[in-house]
Design a protein around this nucleic acid. Structure first.
Lengths: 219, 219
DNA sequence: TTTTAAACCGAACGGTCGTGCTATTATTGA
DNA sequence: TCAATAATAGCACGACCGTTCGGTTTAAAA
């Protein structure tokens, strides 16, 4: 009894995601969105109680999309360093737009857009970004647990550095169109991985070699 | 004969800068701006040929403001590493808003806002950001020249890493309100400086010690 | 097939947007 | 001081914004 509605609603969010990724969250207008999905303004409006709800739904959809195309596949990889490398790889592809969205990450745009405007939208982005950092941190902790990384590694600092590189890539690749962005980010990430590995103990020679090999595979 | 006009124009740009830093460049509206400087919409509008020109002027003013409060003072410092550290220090203060602007860097916001919208505005931001990176690179090259950094340092990579950390700080400090942001960024920057220093030759022991000391001073 | 509720449209509302016009006030050079 | 000119205000415009409401179509339930 509630079939058609949910379907078009997801279509709406899909289109909304595409627009928001290009025009920003506040650049997403109901009229334009309605036109892009072939609905009337009021017809579309009926699916949400107001613009705020629509924007929140878009952000939520953005998180879902990010988790599905970046986090989930990475966390399906083997624990430890391979997982972290997969995560970075997926993430960069996500930013490039190779993964369906034309205009970079909606969440990064929203982060900058909302960082000075208190309210439910900012709260949501804040929370989702904190979760994201937490997951990076956890991935690092797992790598420590697997003896890929040294035991005294500051995982929070690690997560911060990693995220900074992602932001740097976003900036260089999207705005500056710098073709070296990929080289830079992987060099920095590999350095980061190496310094996280440094001083490791109790690893068999062969295993250590494997790790080094894996770290370089994307270059 | 052209006195009053230029004066109020600079007042307008000052207010515009403040608004744009909070609401974003596209969130800067003529009506609101006029109200904030106590002018009528049309009275203010007469100073610019259109909204595009206004936005360009704001971006230009943002660049000037950044250069004046971050770059210029840093480049007044001694060549090499001290200059780079001063640059980072000024930059972080600038992002915090301690330097007159309440809402972070207008240019960083604009970068994300415009990275998918071709046109004169994007071109301007692109150019100014490229200049900025260039200056970071030059600062690194000078440090190499001064034998603070090793001779085979990839200065472009150095500039990229440094800028990534700045972006990371912007994200963590502004959106996430993470109090550890300062710790993280300085730790990463110091690591970066150290790795840029590593393998240096022909430096007297005492000099080397001074450098290390300077690198740690802000922690 | 009929009933009934969900999905959608069209028109209209008050606001605000950027932008022109004309008139009025301030400022300035002579 | 006085004319010239720059600076500003007032008003109106078309366009689009988010939102409401009453009616029509469409799809699910019976």
């Amino acid at each position: 009894m509630v079939r058609k509605g949910a379907k078009t609603k997801s279509q709406i969010l899909e289109a909304a995601l595409r627009i928001a990724s290009q025009e920003g969250l506040s650049g997403l207008t109901i009229g334009e969105l309605a036109k892009s999905v072939g609905l009337s303004k009021s017809g579309l409006f009926a699916h949400f109680k107001g613009k705020d709800t629509l924007q929140l739904s878009v952000l939520s959809a953005a998180v879902d999309h990010f988790v599905a195309t970046v986090m989930a596949p990475a966390f399906a990889e083997p624990r430890g360093q391979p997982r972290i490398e997969a995560l970075v790889k997926n993430w960069l592809a996500f930013i490039d737009g190779s993964t369906s969205l034309p205009g970079g990450s909606v969440l990064i745009s929203a982060s900058v857009e909302l960082d000075d405007r208190p309210g439910p939208l900012r709260d949501f982005v804040q929370k989702s970004q904190r979760d994201l950092i937490r997951n990076l941190e956890k991935a690092a902790m797992i790598a420590v647990d697997e003896s890929h990384f040294r035991r005294d590694l500051d995982c929070e600092q690690f997560a911060w550095s990693l995220y900074s590189y992602i932001l740097g890539y976003h900036h260089f690749a999207r705005l500056l169109d710098n073709p070296k962005a990929t080289t830079f980010v992987w060099r920095s990430v590999n350095d980061l991985l190496e310094s996280a590995r440094a001083g490791r103990t109790m690893i068999k020679k062969q295993e250590s070699k494997n790790i080094k090999q894996t770290a370089r595979k994307r270059r």
